[in-house]
Simulated assay, not measured.
Amino acid sequence: MAVEPAPHVVGLHWRPMEQRTRASLLSRVRDCADDLAWSEFDVTYRELIVRYARRRGLQVSDAEDVRQAVMMRLAERLRSFRYDSGQGRFRDYLRRCVRNEVARLYGRRSGSDAVPIDELAAGAEDVDDLWEAEWRAHHLRLAMAKARAAFEESSIATFERLLAGESPEAIATGQATTVDAVYKVRTRLRSFLRERIAEQLSEEEDGDGRS
């Protein structure tokens, strides 16, 4: 089954930013007894990991195995994790963990459908680009979830039809509204998403090391 491509919002230009997972959550997950922190961490990143693994060609069950393995390894490694903004970004660390687990899964396979580890390494640039695309899609999904809670269903429906490529004129006719109203919905949703994404990235850049 084909995996849904990363979503794209016309007019939402992704600005390159230093993206770092907020230190407060990383501090909390160092305590393996903090079930609430681990639940938040899993909810935040599970779809990102699974979707990336699926786009690497894994079946759903295998992608879930990768997610579980990543979480288990992180549970061990994050005990001694100390956030240092000068030592790179957590998203890069997570990417390496996920890529390693995908490679390990392929390495355990036998048969003609197995993908050699050296072949995976040869395509490192491509899979890194794939991770970046999924990371951006991850933030857009989080922001869209907030939009669904903040806007009326009709506004969300209008925005989704715009994303699907329908013209404002066709949408206005189908919803018995004006073209101007459709444009206003688009402007408001775009602005909302930009703000929410900026907030999410700001949280991830919070590297003050507080616990």
Rank of each mutant, 00 (worst) to 15 (best):
A2Y: 10
P5S: 08
A6E: 14
P7R: 07
G11T: 14
R15A: 15
R15S: 15
M17N: 13
L26R: 10
S27Q: 11
D34Q: 06
W38L: 03
W38H: 13
S39W: 06
E40Q: 12
R51G: 01
E64A: 09
E64Y: 05
R67E: 06
Q68W: 01
V70Y: 12
R77S: 10
R77A: 08
R79L: 00
R82C: 04
S85L: 06
F90W: 04
R91P: 08
R91D: 15
R96H: 11
C97L: 13
V98F: 12
V98A: 12
R99V: 13
E101H: 10
R104T: 05
L105F: 01
Y106S: 06
Y106C: 09
G107A: 14
G107C: 08
R109H: 07
S110N: 07
S110L: 13
S112I: 08
D113W: 02
I117R: 06
I117G: 00
I117H: 02
D118K: 12
A122Q: 14
E125R: 03
D128C: 02
D128M: 03
A137T: 01
H138I: 05
H138F: 07
L140V: 15
R141V: 03
L142M: 09
M144Y: 04
A147Q: 12
A147P: 08
F151W: 12
E152P: 05
A157Y: 00
F159S: 02
F159C: 01
A164L: 12
S167C: 08
P168D: 02
E169I: 14
A172V: 01
A176S: 14
V179S: 08
V179Q: 10
D180W: 11
Y183I: 10
T187S: 13
R188P: 03
F192L: 11
E195K: 03
R196H: 15
A198Y: 05
S202T: 05
E205M: 04
